[in-house]
Amino acid sequence: MKRQIPVILAFLTGTFVVCAFFIEEPHVVGLNRKLDELLMIVTAFALPLGVVSFLQHHSKKIGRRQIGWRNSIVSLLSFTVMACTGVLEPFIRADKQAVAFNWLFDWMFTPLQATMFSLLAFMIASAAFRAFRVRNLEAAILMIAAVIVMLGRVPIGKYVLPGSGPLTEWIMNIPNLAAQRGILIGAALGAASMAIRIILGIERPYMGGAGE
């Protein structure tokens, strides 16, 4: 019974969500919206679980002096400072503002985020270097197409390679889009097939594997 209840729940909610996609009766639409809200509530309840896991993981690392344990100290310190300033500061300050938290967020957290994101440019350069090494016919076609597209996307491109603009549009809109749509249709069918398997209880990844 312990294993049957989740399967029945998955079937009922799955069937309801599928039907709700085709129905616009206000009660059904409302209930469907409530299910979405429920997910957010469940996530909020699961967050403390994440916090406990985070604290345990880093405490163990420090206790056992595992690789990167110094970074764990920084992680725990950062967590404590952000949590304290975010939660306690509005209670302490007369104007109820979390000034220190906002300062840390704006001037430390956001730049760090931006730094990580900007790394992407360098990663693209190194990945492109590897991808464009001409080792076989396919790699050669890929490189030629990439060079045309890159030239077609920059203003100077039309002077370096006349006609690169229209050629770029053709590459992007015909062969590239056709391949993308092929993948998209396959992925959509795969997702729908998996959804049906889960609704029918054939596959139960949420319980650790396939059905019986």
Binding site: I183, G186, A187, G190, A191, R197, I202, A210, G211
Partner: peptide, 19 residues
């Protein structure tokens, strides 16, 4: 694993006839 191959993984790995 490109697109649909991701969703076929459980069938491929488990070889369950139903999947």
């Amino acid at each position: 694993l490109i697109g649909e191959e991701l969703y076929a993984a459980s069938a491929y790995l488990s070889r369950e006839p139903l999947i």
